[in-house]
């Protein structure tokens, strides 16, 4: 076959198509790589100090939980946000071609809010937030939530809904939202050991869940 113009054009077009395809493939693979880098970067900044979270948890969680229950909830919350990674692919929505990714971590903002509670405590009571009485802490938290906006704090017709922990406007709301989604939260509300989304014997399914005698504990 001679190297004529038609063959040259055909070869050029093929080469261009392959190059363009390779560029598209490279582009397509890029977001995943950058998402991982982003995740690695955000992992370094996702920690919240449980010692700073605990005094908040003590006033926003139900007292029936007791000291141990509050401690467990505060630890679970800090562990949860510490393991959060931005840019991770979300579950597929059904009925749509769009696939989303997790938003940037709220940890830094929440850490600022915890620090602000301390500053507010110093200003109002001349002591650290953790040293304030429960009533003083609750008042400071209420004021901070009101100032944080979102989640129905705006004037007009505030939403009654508990936001998801990740969309909570303030760390105190995030803490509470994280707890009410938990097994302990649901069991406490219903005062029965439902243990949602835990591995449980199928044969027990038809039975009325056993009552809780104390927070988080089933009666014998």
């Amino acid at each position: 076959m001679s190297w004529n113009r038609r063959l040259f054009i055909r070869w050029t077009m093929l080469a261009a198509a392959v190059t363009a395809a390779m560029r598209r493939v490279a582009f397509a693979e890029t977001p995943r790589a950058s998402g991982e880098q982003q995740g690695a970067a955000s992992r370094q900044a996702t920690g919240l100090d449980v010692a700073a979270v605990r005094p908040v948890a003590e006033v926003v969680l139900p007292s029936e939980l007791g000291r141990a229950g509050v401690e467990r909830a505060a630890n679970a919350f800090t562990a949860w946000i510490a393991a959060y990674r931005a840019g991770e692919e979300l579950e597929h929505p059904y009925g749509s071609e769009r696939i989303g990714t997790t938003a940037p971590s709220s940890a830094a903002r929440w850490a600022d809010q915890l620090a602000a509670l301390d500053r507010d405590a110093q200003a109002a009571h001349r002591k650290a937030f953790a040293q304030c009485t429960a009533d003083e802490r609750l008042a400071l938290v209420r004021s901070a939530i009101a100032n944080a906006g979102g989640a129905g704090a705006a004037a007009g017709a505030p939403s009654t809904r508990m936001p998801s922990p990740l969309s909570a406007p303030h760390v105190a709301v995030a803490m509470l939202a994280h707890f009410v989604e938990s097994t302990d939260g649901v069991n406490l509300a219903y005062q029965r050991r439902i243990d949602p989304r835990q591995c449980r014997p199928l044969a027990d399914s038809p039975k009325l869940p056993v009552p809780l005698t104390r927070a988080g504990r089933a009666s014998a």
Binding site: A157, P158, S159, R161, V173, A189
Partner: peptide
């Protein structure tokens, strides 16, 4: 049956009030 952050009047529900 979900927990709420605010009651119908818009008051914040925390701790025992929420429960």
């Amino acid at each position: 049956r979900e927990p709420r952050l605010r009651d119908d009047a818009g008051a914040l529900l925390l701790g025992d009030d929420m429960l």
